[in-house]
Design a protein around this nucleic acid. Sequence first.
DNA 1: TTTTTATATCGTAAAAATACGATAAAACAG
DNA 2: CTGTTTTATCGTATTTTTACGATATAAAAA
Lengths: 121, 121
Amino acid sequence: MKKDTTTVRELSRDEARLAAMLKALGNPVRFRMMKYLAERPMCITGDMVVFTALAQSTVSQHLKVLREAGLIEGEIEGPATCYCIHAEGLQFLKDRIQQWLPECCQPEADDREANCCQETS
Amino acid sequence: MKKDTTTVRELSRDEARLAAMLKALGNPVRFRMMKYLAERPMCITGDMVVFTALAQSTVSQHLKVLREAGLIEGEIEGPATCYCIHAEGLQFLKDRIQQWLPECCQPEADDREANCCQETS
DNA sequence: TTTTTATATCGTAAAAATACGATAAAACAG
DNA sequence: CTGTTTTATCGTATTTTTACGATATAAAAA
């Protein structure tokens, strides 16, 4: 008998990357940092410190999380570090979210009464 | 002089909803639960307990987080509770992510050399 | 009614995330 | 070289999240 791998299967490489991105964006501070960074071509750590009104070490930590999730990239620019959106990473996020859970959300006109969850709203 | 509201502005209602969804999905257990639920029209809490191999109370807690984030909906079905994907919520997530950070990720052929962050990969 | 089944909630322990100050490192100015 | 600027990392305190067992609730079965 074939083992059911649909339930216990681990996340694929891409799914793990998507999950990591979602985790990074799950924090409200980092969410706002991404939004802030998206509104300009780049910024340095100090700008983020002013924007978030958090300690410099805290901001540096958050930037590290975003960078390791592949959402931003930093480049040392003299004494400062210049951050910008990682375009490829963000595109990956958008694509994957769009493709994610494709089986659902289709208002197919099949035996809906067999399901217990109708849209009530 | 007009105050700069672009930096300190709070999140809008929709942005807050998106952030809450991302936070809910940021947990790997809940991420997999969503994936599991998307593969079938619905399931009950007990199915999730088997799937995740976690304590029933823990699963119930995670389901609550997903429900409060508007990603799933639960309906009491006799002694059990039947959960399914909240189609509207998931569509909202997809739409918002797609529209999010629209200013970036465009490979416009303008003064790129002025920026410090070139795509190096 | 009593028992069983399925779930939600409560209280709490353990783990993880978050925030801070202090310190280290690296580039540049004087 | 010395001092300044900017950032990353370290150690640690606080907060939040996660997970569990115990208990409460509600529907259905016996």
